[in-house]
Amino acid sequence: MDETELRRMSTGHVFCVIAVVLSIYIPTLFLDDFSFLGTHLSWLCICSLCVIIVHILFLLTLKPNASSKKSSLANKFNKLTKSCIYFLISCFLFHGIIVLYGAPLVESVAETFLFAVLLSSFTTSRCLCLLGPNFPAWVRVFSKDGALSVWDHSLQITTVCSVVGAWLGAFPIPLDWDRPWQVWPISCSLGATIGYVVGLLIAPLWIYWNRKRLTYKSR
């Protein structure tokens, strides 16, 4: 159990949480009449952007999956384009899944798509940063004995929490309370964000709690 690794991860998580929180407050300084509920679409954009930027910074500074061999520039470029394509595919995939789950097909396409982007930035972009555009590795991480490092565990926890949060966020929509946050997709994006933040916060705690049980055989 690598204590320093865990500490580095926790700081990274704190930065992610700060990014999410700031995405609500910072834009009010620059944009007039910006509010979480009122201009939800722009919040969705800003939040996704913030989270993606933090994830990339993460990748550059903390280097969670630092590979020993140096890769060439062409290789890096190749990886980057692949990552972008993966991210786009995941956005469209999420959009499709959300629509199949019952979101309106024709109306509020922009809302649905931006919600899909938000979900992708919570889940896919993190996967891309931590694992790279390496699909078999993703499949491995998301199985019972697949986690090989603390990073893999935190990835598991945040991804599952974000998706579950989004899923739970759909529950208040049918209620007849007539609250502004019951409008599609606010409650879901709220749920996803809360899930993501909660996941970020509990992941280090959970790993610390189970540090005896978790032994990573190889890196």
């Binding site: 078999p136 499949v139 491995r140 998301f142 199985s143 019972k144 004995d145 697949g146 055989k217 190889s218």
Partner: peptide, 23 residues
């Protein structure tokens, strides 16, 4: 998938490590 039922079990003395290779 989580339970690993979708992966064909391979008998290898290395245990967990082989999973990555044969995935």
């Amino acid at each position: 998938h989580w339970d690993g039922r979708l992966i064909i079990p391979t008998l290898s003395p290395l245990g967990g490590d082989s999973m990555k290779l044969t995935l």
